[in-house]
Measured scan of single mutants.
Amino acid sequence: MIINNLKLIREKKKISQSELAALLESSRQTINGIEKNKYNPSLQLALKIAYYLNTPLEDIFQWQ
């Protein structure tokens, strides 16, 4: 199971779900699903999230 700190990191950087979704060329619903652990992002999307949040991938997503 993958757990994530996306919501915590996103809020700390003062970025809304909609703003992050626009940067990622994704939907706000996708970001919401990832944050609620209802959806696991593809590797490509996970890497883009890490890039746009300027945060190491392993700080956002962790195996448990």
Rank of each mutant, 00 (worst) to 15 (best):
M1P: 11
M1L: 15
I2A: 09
I2D: 04
I2G: 04
I3D: 04
I3P: 02
N5Q: 05
L6I: 03
K7E: 10
L8H: 13
L8E: 15
I9Q: 03
I9T: 04
R10Y: 08
R10G: 03
R10K: 00
E11V: 10
K12F: 09
K12G: 11
K13Q: 13
K13F: 10
K14Y: 06
K14G: 15
K14R: 11
I15E: 00
I15G: 05
S16H: 02
Q17A: 07
Q17M: 09
Q17C: 06
S18N: 12
S18A: 13
E19I: 09
E19M: 11
E19Y: 10
E19T: 12
L20G: 00
L20D: 00
A21Y: 01
A22M: 12
A22F: 12
A22W: 09
L23D: 06
E25L: 11
S26R: 10
S26H: 09
S26W: 05
S27V: 04
S27C: 08
S27H: 08
R28Y: 12
R28E: 15
Q29R: 13
Q29W: 11
Q29G: 11
T30R: 08
T30Y: 15
T30E: 11
T30V: 15
I31S: 00
I31H: 04
N32H: 11
G33T: 08
G33M: 15
I34Y: 01
E35I: 05
E35H: 02
N37I: 02
K38T: 13
K38F: 13
K38L: 14
Y39C: 15
P41I: 08
P41E: 03
S42M: 03
S42I: 04
Q44P: 11
Q44D: 12
Q44A: 13
Q44L: 09
Q44H: 12
L45I: 08
A46H: 03
L47H: 10
I49L: 06
I49A: 05
I49N: 00
I49M: 06
A50Q: 03
Y51R: 09
Y52E: 06
Y52I: 15
L53C: 04
L53H: 02
N54C: 12
P56M: 05
P56A: 08
L57T: 03
L57C: 06
E58D: 14
E58S: 13
D59P: 04
F61I: 04
F61G: 00
F61N: 00
Q62L: 08
W63G: 02
Q64I: 07
Q64A: 14
Q64H: 12
